[in-house]
Design a protein around this nucleic acid. Structure first.
Lengths: 200, 200
DNA sequence: GTCTTAGTTGAACGATCAATCAAGTTCTAA
DNA sequence: TTAGAACTTGATTGATCGTTCAACTAAGAC
């Protein structure tokens, strides 16, 4: 199953054959089909695994690299940049890859993709809640967390297509700009603009 | 080739078989292979076609629905929303679909994916240039146009995965908010804030 | 010590995959 | 009128697809 996860991640679901999984893992077809009656069951197990991996593999490391909630948010995003760097754009977001491939057809798989996205988004939302005091009061955290998720998925997609960090970094810079304007706006009513600007 | 384009769009490249293209189009395998020696050549022709379709199928209709450059930008994005509605989330962005599927392996295909993305982005950039007077002078139009493209691709991906417009509309609302703040900031130095606020 | 259950083995299945090719037809130009 | 190139036809190729299954082994229960 671990081998299947890696191969689905690297090549996609359709492009990965059962035979390849068996070769790479050293398992036999009968053993595999004893636990996973169909290829789709294998994919479902992989998607369940990703739900478990979210915290230790994505959120945890980002928390360790920063303390401020907004900085932690960008540390999460930077984690995907590091993955792209380490694999020379071969690996992006495993869920995003499967999302496009499986968004038609299989409803159970799609439901698990949504669960994975929601896990990620709610982790971001949790960070936004911690920064809520600095944001304008009218900001919708569900909306903003969706926006961050969408930006991340789009940025990873484009970076892989371009084999270049230009689009990715542009999105990160724009998103940072957006957050700076939100924070700026959030402090306007309580603190005169001139003072915060004077300190900088 | 037109049938291949539709099937690649709806099902993806790997998931579409030559036999299916032949059945749906009524062509024979020999005829197909006379013009397209490999399946990849067929994909390349499809991607070239998309470059041509950008203007009449995407940009043109959006221009017809709005006049203001920023409104035209959002009209382009709304075009993808309409496509998702019309096909019940079955069809998203044809280039984005292929981008994730082909971002590894074939370099020639990836180059054409990039050309398609760049065509789209430069069309957006052209709109931003027309609105440049309303934006802060320090805004980087290349960065901002990449940001818009990335938001669009991510929004379409998530909408298809969720089978729901929540994420898509959240991204559009956030992007609108970002543009409003840019325009607001762009007018600050020339016009006192109080006056424009008073007019509203 | 035997019965049951869980798990393993790997050859084999029919279907489908992208691709081929010899034969036949249509078009073009001299 | 005719030679040759352009194009079509569809049966067929070997490889690979996901899946099956009868035979086998290992381990715990009574």
């Amino acid at each position: 199953m671990e081998t299947a996860r890696e191969l689905f991640f690297a090549q996609g679901y359709t492009a990965t054959g059962i035979a390849q999984i068996l070769n790479s893992s050293g398992a036999n077809s009968g053993s595999l089909y004893h636990f996973f009656p169909t290829k789709e069951d294998l994919l479902i197990a992989v998607l369940e695994k990703y739900k478990i991996l979210l915290e230790p593999a994505v959120i945890g490391p980002a928390y360790a690299r920063a303390v401020d909630p907004i900085e932690r948010l960008f540390a999460v995003l930077d984690g995907y940049r590091q993955l792209l760097t380490a694999t020379d754009f071969a690996l992006g977001c495993p869920i995003g890859n499967l999302a496009l491939e499986m968004s038609n057809s299989h409803p159970q798989v799609r439901a698990l993709v949504v669960e994975n996205f929601e896990g990620w988004r709610l982790a971001i939302r949790h960070l936004l809640e911690q920064a809520q005091g600095r944001l304008p009061s009218e900001v919708d955290l569900d909306q903003l967390s969706h926006f961050v998720l969408i930006t991340m998925e789009g940025a990873v997609m484009l970076a892989r297509a371009y084999h270049d960090f230009g689009p990715f970094d542009a999105a990160m810079a724009s998103l940072r700009d957006h957050f700076e304007r939100l924070v700026q706006d959030g402090s306007d009513w309580s603190t005169p603009k001139q003072i915060t600007q004077g300190i900088q």
